[in-house]
Nucleic acid binder design. Sequence first.
DNA 1: TTAGGGTTAG
Length: 613
Amino acid sequence: MYKRITKSHFFRTFSSLPNLTSCITTLQSSATNINLHQGKKLHAYMLINGFLTSPISITSLINMYSKCNAISDAFLVFSSSSTSNCELNVFAYNAIIAGFIFNDMPKPALRVYQRMRLAGVTMDKFTFPCVVKAFSGYGDVVGFKIVHGLVFKSGVDHDLFVGSAVVNGYLKFGLMADAHKVFDEMPDRDVVLWNAMINGYAQIGEFQNALECLRKLRAEGNVPSRFTVTGILSVLTLKGDLHNGKAVHGLVTKMGYFSGIAVCNALIDMYGKCKSFLDALDIFEVMAIKDIYSWNSVIGVHQQSGDHEGTLKLFDRMLRDGVFRPDLVTVTTVLPACSHLAALRHGKEIHGYMITKGLGKDDDDTYINNAVMDMYGKCGSMREAQLVFDHMTIKDSASWNIMIMGYAMHGFGHEALNVFHKMREANLMPDEVTFVGVLSACSHGGLVKEGQEFLSQMESRYEIAPTVEHYTCVIDMLGRAGLLEQAYGLLSEMPIKTNSVVWRALLAACHLHGDANLAKIAVRKVIDLEPEHCGSYVLMSNVYGTMGRYEEVSDVRHNMRQQKVKKTPGCSWIEFGNGMHVFGTGDRTHPDEELIYSKLGSLYMSMGLCQTT
DNA sequence: TTAGGGTTAG
């Protein structure tokens, strides 16, 4: 083994065989460059040459393994040293605790900390930042406060690194007043400490205070860092403040921070959420180096702009690009685009991708599985939605609501109510969304009696005040069932403000049952509440059309022209083979038009209807 | 020899 190592190319980089000092220097470079291969060779060499009795070697090896994503090896070095003749000192404890924190493992970090205390090793200003982070990461507020006490006792409370960690810890627990007290008592403040406060205020939505911190930070002569910029951008994003967002964009240019990927990602997000979509896309395109956040943010931009096709195109580009694999965040952004477009094939592909990559298989992946279920539901595949639902170990109220809504949407009223009853059996309290689903299930399934009962139970039994959306479902339900007077009565007696949507539901019912008199009342209300909406004029003209009152049809059309209301032609589409097929009213442009209309004709025949087109 | 801060999802 020794002979093979000494002959290797690796050792030719040294002018003579490395001594302890050069081993440690090289271990540091292995850690910085994440070169595990080089680090392991040095480890072997040091073992053979008896260098591992030095505490410095142990610390350097622990650090190298921690930084090279080999935390278990780091812990092995730590544990085996305590049993050998090398006594563990504060450096070794600090290094392994830091290693666990670096690898986002607060629990084992805390176990080592307890061991360190039992061993009577005195903690120093290097121990505390990591231990503090371990307690806040593990969510142990009592332990965290005890350590804060020890910070005082050890006299390191004025150290900037310790102070920043404590402030961040309190902020993580949502204890702003305590964080502020620690911040105020610090004799010196650097940009990192200020950044902690900026982010703390951002988290609790106190945007003005966050911006005030930025002002004070600069007034005290600190230079905003890349981290300050991302923190402030997150504030402006939540505030929807495009004006100041653009000013920060200027600052980024001035400071030369464009090289920071996170800064650019924050700018993309800010422009996207502030609806300045082209600016967001521009930044993404000019970024020399992108990461998974860049892709996810810009995919989010397409979603926010309502460009669902753009979202799918970008997803394809990401796959073709091949540098970053879609993660949970990516698929949660792309799945709703499939739902909107009813793009079942794309949705299935993404679900398939998730299965092969093991995404969404964990118990707590409820959110992503909800998105998959919603996609199947909106694309009309309730069987698949039910399968996903059945396999989920943890279901939240959204999971149940999605199933109820899915069945309701496709007219499976009884199935929807069945899910609702099972939800109750599972002791989950229904919310507003649940009842929108339940009531639309009653409406689409013609379950009038049940729907009326649910509306009355909402407040008395579930303490949920019905909103205009709930009333709309019920009015739609009564209207579809031909109970127009009852629908009108409910609408007139509604204890909350009506809107154009609920009146339009009544209008649609008037069309269905040919009640021109009630339609007139409804249409007046709709036009009053939303004059620019074309749907109500069209419905009114259809009501007259069905009754053969063509003069009135022409009056409505004339009125529409006078009001400069334009009707956007409606269309439907279906995914088939490799493409999307779009159809407008009376559209005969499809290449398979003859075949399609002949099939349509035979379907009409089977349904006992005459072909009208 | 050892340490602290930022971005993404309905």
